[in-house]
Nucleic acid binder design. Structure first.
Lengths: 187, 187
DNA sequence: GTCTATACACCGATAGAC
DNA sequence: GTCTATCGGTGTATAGAC
């Protein structure tokens, strides 16, 4: 495989994301972001000339790539639809890692971040929903029911993530994912 | 009824809440909060001597009172449990008002706000969950099922609120509340 | 590509007049 | 109880040496 530069944008985005996840766009300061990367504020501007907005965009791009890999790709195969849905939900548990899982797209929806990133986030959520719908349809669930199930799955996962922040644990998410698997409307 | 002072703490909390809801604790600046109340920053400190933290606490107290009135009180009557649950869900729709509904307790769970307010928020969520459980139990739903239904209802409502911020509309919340009413596990 | 030093606006908070 | 004026600190962002 190609040897990557020691400091890739992807590598930086990986370190920036947790700050945006925990503090939101307004709450994430350049001092925090610099500390998280191990660079100075000035060096961050070398990599992200347009400043904090650029950094959040790269964090979002990184989140989108992980969404694709861990959640959407498993949905798209040609295996048994039940296996695909279960694999995607398992991937969802890995996507939302950490002792207190956070959703970057949720955190960026407050304050100034909503103005800047709502379109991009809506696109990602739509892709997620359509991926779920497709797998549900493949399993024989009728169109309208597949639609409402896909919506409900994302709704419950996002709600569980809120409850994780309330309780300070991963437990609501794990319980939710288990419940979703057992309630899948499949034959 | 007693004549209230022209500027009550409750009246101020009502004006402060939308700012904390939309921007979170870190993102809400004193300039915004002053503008929202029509007071100067110095006057805000007269009413809330400990500054922004005090203001957020009063906003939380105001939210707690509204939760009690619109969501919890309807659950606690002696009417038919189905009527109580439906009344509470209708109250939930009013509690989360506005063109893009926001949840103060959710918004305060980011950044510094989580450190300061997580305990208080967890207490409110627990009360909500127990109120739902009690009404479900009264309707004959078994303990374990009442517990998981109460959890799922809050989870879905919170998730729907996230999707409202994604789409910029009330529609996910309204759809969720309608679905919950029609799916209530009652006789 | 990294850094130190710095610019200037805004932050939360306070002093003190009215 | 409200205000203007101001404090010290931090915010984002830039200049320029190495």
């Amino acid at each position: 495989m190609a040897r990557p530069a020691r400091l890739t944008k992807t590598g930086l985005a990986e370190k920036l994301s947790p700050v945006f996840e925990r503090y939101g766009y307004d709450g994430a300061s350049l001092s925090m972001l610099a500390a998280a990367t191990g660079l100075s504020k000035a060096s961050l501007y070398h990599h992200f000339p347009r400043g904090k907005e650029d950094m959040a965009l790269y964090a979002l791009a990184h989140a989108g790539a992980r969404l694709q890999k861990l959640i959407l790709a498993p949905l798209a195969g040609k295996d048994d639809p039940r296996d695909r849905l279960e694999a995607s939900l398992a991937g969802t548990g890995r996507y939302y890692g950490g002792d207190i899982p956070h959703c970057l797209m949720n955190s960026l929806l407050l304050g100034e971040g909503r103005v800047l990133f709502a379109d991009r986030i809506a696109t990602a959520v739509t892709a997620w929903r359509q991926g779920l719908m497709a797998a549900l349809s493949d399993s024989g669930v009728l169109g309208a029911e597949a639609d409402s199930w896909a919506r409900e799955m994302i709704e419950r996962i996002q709600g569980a993530l809120v409850l994780c922040r309330v309780s300070g644990t991963r437990e609501p998410l794990e319980t939710c994912l288990d419940a979703l698997i057992s309630e899948l409307p499949l034959s």
